[in-house]
Design a protein around this nucleic acid. Structure first.
Lengths: 103, 103
DNA sequence: GACGTTGTACGATGATTGCCGTACCTTATC
DNA sequence: GATAAGGTACGGCAATCATCGTACAACGTC
């Protein structure tokens, strides 16, 4: 049956909000995810070593995506994640780097 | 009557935690306070133009202080606030500047 | 001493958060 | 078609959060 692929919505570069980004980065689990994404380009959700269940993981990825920190795209059954380095750098220069350096 | 001046406790530089700092900075009211502190050295709590009541303000200053973002010292009846620029820069180089630039 | 100012302490409340389990969808493989 | 793997959706729960009002403490000033 033909099910329309549901859009994965992301904020545009202009829509990024500093407080939302800072809040997204203020959780240790999410920070760990972001750090892992920073060192290895594109990774599926299952490839992260975090001490939470699948459903909690989905929640954290949603927070990161809606804050504009990561981009997700569907690839078969898995969802591939990338850091939105360029967009973050354009809106908040130096922020991501300083957070990653401190993490 | 001799009441001992209660200590205002601050985390040491080594005790600063990235997630706590990011969380403290992720609230719009607190971000506004920090931005105001960045542009004018030492200010009393009452000098900030934020849309919340006194008691909420006390709460925000407490969050900022306990995260190590600001330092408070008593001066008569008022409490003077300063940004802990040096400590933040030492532990999380570039972080505060990038946040302030983006705010 | 009586006020006024500055700020804290202590609830209370409603919203958000982080976490989980269960059920389910989609794709791939046997 | 049955099963397995990767994820999401939904509902629930306990903890935290941002906000407020009221009461109160410390210090100046009239």
């Amino acid at each position: 049956m033909a099910v329309v692929q549901q859009e994965i919505s992301h904020p545009t570069r202009d829509e990024l909000e500093l407080s939302a980004v800072l809040h997204a980065l203020s959780d240790p689990v999410r920070l760990k995810i972001v750090a892992a994404l920073a060192s290895e380009a594109e990774q599926s959700c299952a490839s992260f070593d975090v001490p939470v269940t699948k459903s909690t993981c989905t929640h954290h990825f949603k927070v990161l995506r809606e804050a504009g920190v990561i981009r997700q795209r569907q690839e078969g059954t898995s969802r591939l994640n990338t850091l939105r380095r360029d967009d973050l750098e354009a809106r908040f220069p130096g922020l991501l780097d300083s957070v990653l350096r401190a993490a």
